[in-house]
């Protein structure tokens, strides 16, 4: 009996130590990555490539997500609002919900699915095929060449992506509102504009920048510490998308509390 309890406690101890070790490694990695954002040399070509890969090529997925979300949101709010004769709130609630919450969170999740996994798979493969070691032997710091440009590009492009996504989402609501729910076009636009405040937009964009940082950081961390072989890279990819998504939700709550 004592042996069983001993074994159980040992397992809990090992898991706890392992968890603290992982958190510690992630914190150290983050500190190192951030420090390299401010120390030369800077690899501007690598940064420009990442701006395209992370930012520009994510536009379709963010845009389409926002378009359909805005449309569905308009229908849902109309349906809910009509129960207490508040259909007129559709434009303002669509705008506020898109800008403050749905734009950054859904955009963040979609980019996490597209970019975090792609970074983890790319860096994981580079780790497994010794390309990261090769970079070091070529006198190039992999943290500077691989990690810093990705983190900077994601942190800077996410707010732009989310701003475009917000606009498209509001347009999605407008198209459904005017085309399907018979709102007057100019009234819909005026209600959208009048109720939207600078703080709504600002808080959404700050969230987007934080999510961008998380997406690239977790993708890089998972890929950089990838295990060996195809399974190692697969696990790194899976871990990247799961961790990034959970951290997006958690940080979204914290940021919402801060801006509330």
């Amino acid at each position: 009996m004592i042996q069983v309890i001993d074994g159980f406690l040992a397992r809990i101890g090992r898991s706890t130590l392992s968890m603290f070790e992982s958190v510690g490694r992630l914190v150290m990695f983050t500190a190192l990555a951030v420090s390299h954002l401010f120390r030369p040399p800077f690899y501007w070509n690598a940064f420009a490539r990442q701006l395209m890969t992370i930012g520009f090529y994510s536009l379709p997925v963010v845009g389409l997500t926002a378009l359909f979300t805005g449309g569905a949101l308009a229908l849902q709010i109309y349906s809910g609002g009509s129960r207490f004769s508040a259909e007129a709130v559709v434009p303002s609630i669509v705008a506020i919900a898109m800008v403050r919450e749905l734009g950054p969170v859904l955009g963040g999740l979609m980019v996490a699915g597209r970019v975090s996994t792609s970074i983890a798979a790319e860096l994981g493969t580079m780790r497994v095929t010794e390309q990261i070691d090769a970079l070091t032997t070529l006198s190039t710091n992999p943290m500077k060449y691989l990690v810093a440009p990705r983190i900077l590009a994601a942190t800077l492009t996410m707010p732009i992506l989310v701003f475009i996504g917000d606009t498209i989402g509001i347009m999605g609501g407008y198209m459904v509102g005017v085309g399907r729910l018979d709102f007057n076009s100019s009234t819909y636009l005026r209600n959208t504009w009048d109720f939207l405040q600078f703080d709504d937009i600002y808080s959404g964009l700050v969230k987007a920048a934080v999510f961008g940082f998380i997406i690239a950081l977790i993708g890089c961390y998972s890929g950089y510490h990838s295990g060996r072989g195809a399974q190692g890279v697969g696990n790194a990819t899976k871990s990247a998308v799961v961790t990034a998504s959970v951290l997006i939700f958690a940080s979204n709550y914290i940021l919402t509390e801060m801006f509330f």
Partner: peptide
Amino acid sequence: LDQFGMLFQGGALFDSLPVWQNISFRLLQ
């Protein structure tokens, strides 16, 4: 590290760069 050159077992060439940039990588930094 500038003193060293290394040939890796699997080549470890950078997939995203053309051959000439792989070869001249160190000299392009």
